[in-house]
Design a protein around this nucleic acid. Structure first.
Lengths: 227, 227
DNA sequence: ATATCATTCAAGAGATTTATTGAATGATAC
DNA sequence: GTATCATTCAATAAATCTCTTGAATGATAT
């Protein structure tokens, strides 16, 4: 009785892990960490067939990692709450600490140049307040427009080089993007370091910043203020 | 290049989730959360064949959730660090919040009687210091001997009824066991409530208490002091 | 009502994971 | 060295998961 209940309980716990145990579903969660999206947008971003994408989303919903609502014809999916985000971040942290291959990949992306430790969001907030640092948002412009760290400049990856020419090499640069899964900030920081800047990444991404309860700007007023 | 690296990275993250995505491996982790153990002890506890148990443990080791060392002929496995514990706790929390079936099972175990909210470990520590509460450790005596909350009484599940006769019904009782997976404390508290005691469970179990950095007694001196 | 669009459902072939078996390794004792 | 014990490795059949296909649903527009 107690034993069978216990086993049933553990089955349910394992089912949550199983939902995460597919690269496709991980990518879907990564996308949803940027904000809610419809099935068609997710299918396109992840290059999954429509039906397959829908099935993966249902699996995630079945274990409560995401929820969905109808909006006209469209089904809009979103992460259930910050716990889903915390779960992803914890898995990613364990991977960096314990799987050599993960650290190798992250080193490889840094292009052989020394990769400084990411800056904590707390330090970022302090230096932003002090105004002695430039913060770059490396995500696509649409995502920047939908929400960004107040005071950050929009710097899509393919425009970082150009933007660098207008920056002062003596001012430190902190780059962030979507979060632990997203490598935009890593690549941007590596490129900037190669050009002689003191560039670092920020721990986590905008979703983590949000999860901290920190302010988010939703248009480009803040950018004007900084420029 | 960046894309393929990103996919490789996500594959690794998913591999950690895949390692957790089996009830057998979950049970192994639950056992290891009580302390390090050899392969034979784990095989016996989980009723897995020896070779199968070894293979599951290797899978967990491959992704860094557990580590092992040799001690003579024996291979001793242990959780790599507290992050593994945090991962299990987070999954379990998400399951309770989002999967109805999980809450149903926990309610069922309570035997139809109202199930009060678990007491936080912080509150437990305060009331222990104040001395106005009885704390019961519902795990097997060997596990109690290997480490317990200072001041707790050893009360294996099948002895709780007997012990209850010597307790004062006006003093609240807090019961704990191995942690979120373990139902001993839930059952003990339910039985005590049926006998008219004000009995509650403690959030998490001994591993969580340890992870908090709180003191752990390793023999029964503390029990003598309380009795 | 019918048409259309976005999404979900259902069934089956293909790929992956799992448990079992028996052999191989590694460490200790003699 | 050989014997013994605990563990790991390797190969296979069975179970499970995954993707594709095509049909079914649900919501809106006409």
């Amino acid at each position: 009785m107690s034993t069978s209940n216990k086993l049933a309980l553990i089955d349910e716990y394992a089912s949550i892990a199983r939902a995460l145990a597919s690269p496709h579903r991980m990518r879907l969660l990564e996308q949803l960490a940027q904000g809610e999206k419809g099935v068609d947008a997710l299918a396109e971003k992840t290059e999954l067939s429509f039906a397959n994408c829908s099935q993966h989303l249902q699996e995630l919903r079945r274990v409560g990692l995401v929820t969905s609502r109808r909006e006209g014809k469209a089904a809009i999916y979103r992460l259930t709450d910050d716990d889903t985000l915390r779960l992803m971040a914890l898995i990613q942290k364990i991977a960096r600490q314990n799987i050599d291959r993960v650290d190798e990949i992250l080193d490889g992306i840094a292009g052989g140049i020394e990769r400084p430790e990411p800056v904590s969001r707390e330090v970022l907030a302090e230096r932003l307040a002090a105004g002695d640092v430039v913060v770059l948002d490396i995500r696509p412009p649409e995502e920047f427009a939908a929400g960004h760290i107040p005071g950050a400049l929009s710097a899509p990856l393919d425009e970082v080089g150009q933007l660098a020419e207008s920056l002062d090499p003596s001012t430190p640069i902190y780059a962030y993007c979507r979060g632990p899964y997203c490598l935009y900030a890593d690549r941007a920081a590596a490129e900037l370091r190669q050009r002689g800047f003191d560039a670092r990444t920020v721990e986590g991404g905008l979703p983590d910043w949000r999860a901290d309860g920190r302010p988010v700007a939703t248009d480009d007023k803040a950018v004007d203020a900084v420029i």
